[in-house]
Each structure stands twice: as structure tokens, then as C-alpha cells.
């Protein structure tokens, strides 16, 4: 074995690997919240499901078809648990918000890896 043949062994950077795993987890969390909240609030919380009047081309409201069956009547408003929060805001925003906070805590406690970031370099070292 000569000096020329000796190469440093390369492994995937563990910070990159762990960060990528956490990144995927968080994007899935965002997607789940988005799907639930947008669907619930749009269907349960709107007086009218009219299309966007200023949309260029057909609006997304038109693409999903008429949803007039979901139009709310103003008198149908309830406020769960006497908190004074409209029902659609309570179940569409506040409940998933609480769930998301709980998941965030669990993520930080059990999923997040405390990687060592103290690689080479100091602030202001370049150029």
C-alpha cells in the first residue's frame, strides 16, 4: 500500500442526514395541518363559497365545483364550551393549533437530534 492509494474515508455527514429526516417530518406536519384546516374552515366556516372575482383564469373555487350545500346560515353559529369562539374557528383553527403545539413539543423531545455543529470556521473568517 503506497501513500497515493490512501484516501480519507467518506461518510454521509450525520448533521445532513439527521436534518433531512427532521425536514421531511416537519414538511409532513405542515401538510397535514394545511389539509385539515383549509378543508374544514372552508367547508364549515363560509357564508358563501363564491369564486375569487379577481382571479386570472378560472379560480380554484370554480375548479372544485359548486359548494353551495356548505353555505352557512348566520343563525347557525354556535360557540363550543361557551368560550365565545365561533364553532368553525374552534374546530378548524384552535383545536389543530393545540395539537400542532403538542406535536412540536414531542418532536423536540424525542425526534430532534442534538447534533454537534462546531465544525470548521468562525464568523468572519472569509475571505
Amino acid at each position: 500500500m503506497t501513500a497515493d492509494s490512501i484516501q480519507p474515508r467518506k461518510t454521509v455527514d450525520p448533521v445532513f442526514r439527521n436534518s433531512l429526516r427532521e425536514c421531511v417530518f416537519l414538511l409532513l406536519l405542515w401538510l397535514a395541518c394545511c389539509l385539515y384546516t383549509v378543508t374544514y374552515c372552508y367547508l364549515a366556516g363560509y357564508l358563501v363559497h363564491e369564486p375569487h372575482p379577481n382571479a386570472t383564469g378560472p379560480s380554484i373555487g370554480k375548479l372544485v365545483g359548486p359548494l353551495t350545500a356548505f353555505d352557512r346560515h348566520p343563525q347557525s353559529l354556535t360557540t363550543p364550551f361557551g368560550l365565545g369562539v365561533p364553532d368553525w374557528v374552534f374546530f378548524g383553527v384552535i383545536v389543530p393549533w393545540v395539537v400542532a403545539v403538542v406535536i412540536t413539543v414531542l418532536y423536540c423531545l424525542f425526534f430532534f437530534v442534538e447534533d454537534d455543529l462546531s465544525g470548521a470556521g468562525r464568523a468572519g473568517e472569509n475571505p
Binding site: V15, F16, N18, S19, L20, E22, C23, L26, L27, L29, W30, C33, C34, T37, C41, G92, V93, P96, W97, A100, V101, T104, Y107, C108, F112, D115, L117, S118, G119, A120, G121, R122, A123, G124, E125, N126
Partner: peptide, 26 residues
Amino acid sequence: ASYMVAGVCSMGVLGKRLNQVARKTG
């Protein structure tokens, strides 16, 4: 409503990796 995950996403998705890369290059 997306502020329910804005904190964890905006810090968690890039935070650790960006910090590492910035340290690496100064």
C-alpha cells in the same frame, strides 16, 4: 392559522443545517 406550525417549520427545517454550513464556510 399556519402560525400553528410556523415556529417549528421556519426554524426546524433549515436551522441546524444552515448553521452548520455557515460555520463550515465562515
